[in-house]
Write a protein that binds this DNA or RNA. Structure first.
Lengths: 169, 169
DNA sequence: ATTTTTGTTCAAAAATGTTTGAACTTTCCG
DNA sequence: CGGAAAGTTCAAACATTTTTGAACAAAAAT
């Protein structure tokens, strides 16, 4: 019974596919993510059918380790999901999530919110440290600067839902 | 004086200043910028008076090269400006720009817009390549995926001015 | 006109981040 | 059970980015 994984095709990427993948490699670089994530996402994005980890490894010529870690990270970002595997196949197949809303949401949740969170914590520490400054003139200056950062963090927290709303329609 | 070469004694930073600097080091990492930019900006941000390149070098204990390049990059981002130099002094002094509007605007202009721009170009190339695909079914799929990316890029271009507007008040 | 001060440049070193691959675990199947 | 297939882990190899520092240039002071 011939199955997917029995086909020993070298699977050379067409120029178009390569172009799409490169597009996403550049895209994820802007977001500060490793190139392999861009490659994998790009490949899935331009594949009509879901692909297995093995498909990814062979098509992109990357290691199993990279593919495994990359797929996990993309799942975590909500950029890739497991496709429902219909037949009695024990591989899991992956497909790209293509809704901008989901992509942006995942990125904000995983990459931005945690930093905003820790920023808030550090800021609170900072304010506490500043309270121990005795010189009133210096103290006034510090209070201004710290409250300014506070304003920035606050604005950041406000604007994220707006971005999600605008991109999510 | 028996000092090690002409290496200057590093100025010791108060804990508060160190905390602020670290805050910005983390901040710029999120933006994909080198730590030295965060250090320099943080130092200027928490300094009441403008500082010279030499001040930056000695206080942060970084090389002159790093300080020079870092200050240039920060100027390019609009995050730092040259202060009006008191007469009789030929050093130039730098101060942090603290308006969120300016910071965000500079970052978008320098780091985001260029990528959006090149994204548009690559996308146009892609669309041209896709036109050569003959299989109608495959072609239909590709057209959908490509127009979807086009939509993303378009949305990105629309949302940037909104962000600037919201943060710029 | 020489030296000192101020700052820039860039090749190489150091630091950091990414990918690999071999060993390992888990699950399925006979 | 034992073996094979699928997937994970992580230390080391590799790649990229950042920082350094010595050489250089410009300009002011001596």
């Amino acid at each position: 019974m011939p199955r997917r994984q029995d086909l020993p095709e070298p699977h050379v990427l067409a120029p178009l596919e390569r172009q799409v993948i490169d597009f996403f490699v550049d895209g994820v670089r802007v977001l500060g993510l490793p190139p392999s994530l861009g490659e994998i996402y790009g490949l899935l994005y331009i594949s009509r059918d879901p692909l297995s980890l093995d498909d990814v490894v062979h098509t992109l010529n990357i290691s199993k380790g990279s593919a495994s870690q990359g797929l996990r990270a993309l799942k975590g970002l909500g950029a890739v999901r497991e496709a429902i595997t219909a037949n009695g196949d024990r591989k899991t197949y992956y497909e790209a999530a293509v809704e901008l809303k989901r992509l942006v949401g995942g990125f904000i949740r995983e990459q931005i919110r945690p930093h905003l969170e820790s920023g808030r914590t550090k800021l609170a520490d900072l304010a506490r440290t500043a309270e121990t400054v005795s010189d009133p003139s210096r103290r006034e200056f510090l209070d201004d600067r710290i409250s300014r950062i506070d304003q920035w963090v606050r604005r950041g927290g406000q604007i994220l839902p707006m971005i999600q709303k605008i991109l999510g329609e």
